[in-house]
């Protein structure tokens, strides 16, 4: 018989949290907003012996935008605060769009961007835009701190590259290069609130009218938020046109590996990857030009 309760710890520093995670048993869970953890517990998917909450750690909810460091989103920074942050809206609109489109008002007032990443849902709304913008994660652990590209973080549904007792303490996005633009677009059955059936993160850099660099990611269409390199190649060093964006969408659709589930069928997802990739590219291009 599994116990229904758990022990609760609220460390006040990152080092204290790491020590707790090292000392407590395997069945210990890190909690930021708790909006995913408590649902999984309620649905009987997990039976935690202990929960280590991060909210009491001072400064971990920090959001900063700087010319050198870029954007730093602390582990307990709320989705609502990222969505409403003027600096993010100005410099990283794809990031605030993704946060704003995650779940509903109440969940955004509780849940965190970093928590959304750490749950490693294939449909995580905040993953594609952060991936497209080349985000890195700052990780603290018993062996010391390390930095990991977000692209190397996701291993499968619910699986990440975090080692035992490690905690993601922040996500960092480098300053956007000149003449670049990024976008996040998504599609879900109800349009709001529910999980995305397809979500796209796009980033392009222009040199004159030509695309000099492109990073395209598709969410909810593979076991992890996946990169679509052939779609990227389609636009590279070409003059950007709507037709080109459409070609890239077609390429992304061939690369994506969606399944049929409660949110959408495989066929519909494949069609929508093409449409949404095109839309994301058009918006990213518009932002790069402005």
């Amino acid at each position: 018989m599994k116990r229904s309760g758990f022990d609760y710890y609220a460390p006040e520093s990152i080092s204290e949290a790491v020590v707790l995670l090292s000392d407590l048993g395997e069945n210990t869970f890190v909690m930021a907003g708790g909006t995913d953890l408590l649902i999984r517990k309620r649905h009987g998917m997990i039976f935690p012996d202990a929960v280590v909450a991060l909210k009491k750690i001072k400064g971990l909810d920090r959001i900063s935008v700087g010319p050198k460091k870029g954007l730093v989103i602390g582990a307990t920074a709320l989705l609502a605060d990222v969505a409403a942050h003027k600096g993010i809206q100005n410099k990283y609109p794809a990031i605030s769009d993704a946060a704003k489109n995650t779940a509903n008002v109440q969940i955004r007032n509780m849940g965190t961007v970093v928590g959304n990443l750490c749950n490693a849902s294939p449909s995580a709304d905040n993953a594609p835009a952060l991936l497209a913008l080349g985000a890195t994660l700052s990780i603290a652990g018993p062996q010391g701190d390390r930095t990991l590209a977000l692209e190397d973080f996701f291993l499968g549904p619910g699986l990440t590259a975090l080692k035992p007792a490690e905690i993601v303490i922040a996500a960092t996005v480098p300053p956007p290069p000149a003449n670049s633009g990024a976008a996040y677009v998504h599609l879900s059955a109800r349009g709001k609130v529910d999980c995305s059936a397809v979500c796209i993160g796009a980033h392009i850099e222009l040199q004159g009218r030509k695309v000099n660099n492109a990073r395209l990611f598709v969410g909810a269409c593979a076991p992890i938020p996946m990169r679509t390199p052939r779609a990227e190649k389609t636009v590279m060093r070409k003059v950007f046109t709507e037709k080109l964006a459409e070609k890239a969408g077609a390429a992304a659709s061939e690369e994506a590996l969606p399944i049929t589930d409660v949110r959408a069928t495989q066929d519909y997802r494949n069609s929508m990857v093409a449409v949404m990739t095109k839309r994301a590219l058009l918006l990213a291009h518009k932002r790069a030009r402005s």
Partner: peptide, 13 residues
């Protein structure tokens, strides 16, 4: 001052 789901909020928090 913020709306939250009380079903997903631990009282201890």
């Amino acid at each position: 001052g913020r709306s939250v789901s009380s079903c997903l909020t631990l009282a201890v928090e």
